[in-house]
Simulated assay, not measured.
Amino acid sequence: MEKIIYTLWRNPQDSLESFSQRLRGEVAEQLFTLGARGLQVNLVDADVAPAAGLRQENNRPLPDALLSLWVDSANILFRRPVDEVLVATSSRLAAYLVSESVAIRNTRFPARPGERTYGFSQIAFLSCPPRLTRDAWLDIWRNHHTPVAIDTQDNFLYVQNLVVRALTHGAAPLDAIVEEAFPPAAMTDPMAFFDAPGDEAKFQHNLAAMMESCQRFIDFDKIDVLPTSQYLLKTAAAV
């Protein structure tokens, strides 16, 4: 089974709400008919408006939605009908084949199929800086940064998607797409985000540790960060 992440931009005439409803409704049903083993939609919507201050936009415009699709095969022969469905509902898309690593599984606030997941899901689009080899970048990110991200933040879901390759022409060059879910308070309260509510000393320690770790493998003028609402529509299953 393979995982594909589509970045989607809505048509200008569509509202965010209508775009959201279409992806979670008729589009999802079409993808299930085409054999989707699992499906998740992440949306920029009114529910995450308070998190606007967390948005980082270096490569504009950022997408309005991400669609994660688990399929038997991402080969174009089998993927083409899926691409056609998504092209018909968006103004632009890019698709990436990814290798998924779940560093934190959501057991605190388990997603209910079809319902909005508690809190919000922060998506980060990463590229390997020119100063690092890919192997060195992977080692820092996966083997050294991961425990820091777990220890210093109140994230209850942490998924590291390593981009294997772009599947569509013109897709922005990316090396990873990261998904992290946080409680609602983290949208507006940095101390809640860094797992230190009401504790200034812990907040400063966690913030410093996280920033120091990020600086080792991220160029902050290249990263894009997108707060979203997560909807798990179908849990990935091989059979």
Rank of each mutant, 00 (worst) to 15 (best):
L132Q: 02
A185I: 00
A171G: 15
H145F: 15
P147Q: 12
T117F: 07
R134S: 13
E180K: 03
P147W: 13
D199F: 12
M211L: 06
A186I: 02
A209D: 12
C214R: 04
H169E: 15
R216D: 01
A196C: 14
A171K: 08
D135F: 08
L126D: 10
D221K: 12
P173F: 10
G170T: 11
W141F: 14
A209W: 10
N155C: 15
F220H: 02
R131L: 05
A209F: 02
D199I: 06
A185V: 01
F217C: 00
H169W: 11
D154M: 13
R112G: 04
V159C: 09
E179M: 02
A166C: 01
P173M: 05
A176Q: 02
V178A: 15
D154T: 05
I218L: 07
F194H: 10
P184N: 06
T168Y: 12
L126K: 08
F182M: 03
E200G: 06
A166M: 05
R165Q: 13
R142W: 05
L207V: 09
A192E: 14
R216H: 02
T146I: 03
T146Q: 08
M191W: 12
G119V: 04
P184S: 09
N206W: 15
L157S: 13
P173A: 11
F156S: 03
P113L: 03
A208V: 02
D219C: 01
S127H: 13
N155D: 05
A176G: 06
A209T: 09
E212K: 11
A136H: 15
P147C: 09
F156K: 01
M187S: 10
V163H: 14
F193H: 08
W141E: 00
F182R: 05
G114R: 11
N155I: 10
D154S: 15
A196G: 05
V148S: 06
W141I: 00
T168A: 12
T188S: 09
Q215Y: 10
E200K: 07
L174K: 11
D199P: 01
T133Y: 06
A209C: 02
L167D: 03
F193V: 01
N143I: 05
T146D: 03
R134H: 13
F217S: 00
H144R: 15
D199H: 07
D175N: 11
R165L: 03
E115L: 09
A172M: 13
I123M: 10
W141T: 00
G119M: 07
D219K: 03
L126G: 05
F220E: 02
P147I: 07
G119R: 08
L132Y: 06
A136Q: 11
A192G: 11
S213H: 05
G114Q: 13
V159L: 14
F125P: 00
S121P: 01
R112H: 14
A185T: 01
A111F: 01
Q215C: 10
A201Y: 07
L157K: 04
I177R: 06
N161E: 00
A111H: 04
S121H: 07
